Amino acid sequence: MLQKMRFLHTWFEKIVNGKGFDRCLKNIQILSYADGKCKAQFTVAEEHLSCFGLLHGGFTSSVIDVISSYALMSYQTGKPAGASVDLHVTFLKAAFPGEVVTVNAKTICAGKTLGFLAVELTKNDGKDVVARGQHTKFLMPIKK
């Protein structure tokens, strides 16, 4: 369990400190990672905002994509989860600068080629749902 968590933190640090798009996730904290679930948290900051001063939908979608992928990684091999096949996001409530958003992702099921995940972003200690996501991932074959 501890080894899986170390792997995730190493992987996450490499991604968010790289030169690619995932740098936008650098202020997310992974709180837990085990048994097909991943919990993360971030405080809405200026770099997360749309031009209207609210949590940006594209950022929200990226968070759902990445944190659900980590949930899937914890479900099976602990290795990178593969490619997105489908990502559906429902935006329910705005989040504003300074608010803490908690991300709860869980693996619904995973077979030989596909994994199905559900994600919920909440604020106000879980009282308000900001967004819900459903994510389907293609599972890369594991080389033996």
Rank of each mutant, 00 (worst) to 15 (best):
K123S: 05
T102G: 02
L2G: 09
T136K: 06
N17G: 13
K26T: 14
D128Q: 06
N17D: 15
M1C: 00
K14V: 12
Q41V: 04
F21D: 10
I28H: 03
Q41T: 07
G18D: 12
M140H: 12
I142C: 12
K79F: 15
S50E: 12
A71H: 03
I142N: 14
V63P: 03
K37R: 07
D35R: 02
E99G: 04
A81T: 08
F52S: 12
I67T: 02
G82W: 15
M140G: 13
T90I: 10
C38W: 00
G57K: 14
T122R: 01
R23Q: 13
F91S: 07
R132L: 11
D65G: 01
L92S: 04
V129I: 14
F59R: 11
L121N: 04
H88A: 15
V44F: 09
H88W: 09
V16S: 07
L8F: 01
S50R: 07
N104D: 09
G82P: 10
I30A: 02
K26A: 14
L117M: 03
N104M: 10
I142E: 15
A45I: 06
K14L: 15
V44P: 08
H135M: 09
V130P: 11
D128T: 03
A40I: 00
M140W: 09
L8P: 06
G78M: 05
H48N: 05
A95F: 08
W11K: 03
T113H: 07
L117Q: 11
T60H: 08
F91E: 08
D35M: 04
F7I: 12
D86P: 00
L2M: 04
F59S: 12
F42P: 05
V101A: 02
F91A: 08
V103E: 06
T113K: 03
T113R: 05
V100F: 03
D35N: 08
S84T: 15
D65P: 07
G78K: 09
M1H: 06
L49M: 08
G98K: 05
M1N: 01
F7N: 07
E120A: 10
T113M: 03
K19V: 12
L31K: 00
L8K: 00
V101T: 04
V103D: 02
V89C: 15
L2V: 04
